[in-house]
Amino acid sequence: MESKKIDSKEFPILEFDESRLAIIEATHFIKPKEEFEYCVITFFRDVIEKMRGN
């Protein structure tokens, strides 16, 4: 069975950029805050309610 090389032009999500600087860099617009050690992001209502203690 021959493996076919995936063309990154056909699937742009497969492209890789070695630059460590983003095109839109949040630190250019927002000053960093040292208030929080962790951030949790979820889209599950039950998890949000459990963390809020509801």
Score class of each variant (00 low, 15 high):
residue 1 M to Q: 09
residue 27 T to Q: 09
residue 34 E to V: 05
residue 47 V to N: 13
residue 41 I to F: 09
residue 20 R to Y: 07
residue 5 K to L: 13
residue 48 I to Q: 12
residue 6 I to E: 03
residue 16 F to K: 13
residue 12 P to E: 09
residue 9 K to A: 07
residue 50 K to V: 03
residue 11 F to W: 10
residue 48 I to L: 12
residue 4 K to R: 11
residue 4 K to A: 03
residue 18 E to R: 08
residue 49 E to Y: 14
residue 38 Y to G: 06
residue 7 D to A: 05
residue 8 S to P: 10
residue 20 R to I: 12
residue 53 G to E: 03
residue 54 N to W: 02
residue 52 R to H: 06
residue 31 K to E: 12
residue 13 I to P: 00
residue 31 K to T: 08
residue 9 K to V: 01
residue 19 S to A: 14
residue 42 T to D: 03
residue 43 F to P: 00
residue 49 E to L: 15
residue 33 K to A: 04
residue 30 I to P: 00
residue 22 A to D: 07
residue 1 M to A: 13
residue 13 I to D: 10
residue 27 T to P: 00
residue 2 E to R: 09
residue 38 Y to A: 08
residue 6 I to T: 07
residue 27 T to M: 12
residue 28 H to E: 14
residue 3 S to W: 05
residue 27 T to R: 14
residue 30 I to M: 00
residue 45 R to D: 13
residue 41 I to N: 08
residue 52 R to W: 04
residue 5 K to N: 06
residue 53 G to Q: 04
residue 1 M to E: 11
residue 37 E to P: 00
residue 25 E to R: 07
residue 40 V to T: 13
residue 22 A to R: 11
residue 31 K to Y: 04
residue 20 R to L: 13
residue 24 I to R: 01
residue 6 I to G: 01
residue 19 S to V: 05
residue 6 I to A: 03
residue 4 K to E: 06
residue 53 G to D: 02
residue 24 I to Q: 00
residue 14 L to P: 01
residue 7 D to T: 04
residue 37 E to R: 08
residue 41 I to T: 14
residue 44 F to W: 07
residue 17 D to K: 14
residue 38 Y to R: 12
residue 34 E to L: 09
residue 47 V to L: 14
residue 31 K to V: 03
residue 53 G to C: 04
residue 52 R to D: 08
residue 10 E to P: 02
residue 35 E to K: 12
residue 40 V to Y: 13
residue 39 C to T: 15
residue 50 K to G: 04
residue 19 S to W: 00
residue 21 L to K: 11
residue 35 E to R: 07
residue 33 K to E: 04
residue 4 K to G: 00
residue 36 F to W: 07
residue 14 L to T: 06
residue 19 S to D: 15
residue 18 E to S: 15
residue 38 Y to W: 14
residue 51 M to N: 09
residue 18 E to V: 05
residue 49 E to G: 05
residue 24 I to A: 04
residue 52 R to V: 03
residue 32 P to S: 04
residue 34 E to R: 10
residue 31 K to C: 01
residue 28 H to Y: 08
residue 16 F to I: 13
residue 1 M to L: 09
residue 13 I to Q: 11
residue 15 E to F: 01
residue 4 K to S: 05
residue 53 G to K: 05
residue 23 I to N: 06
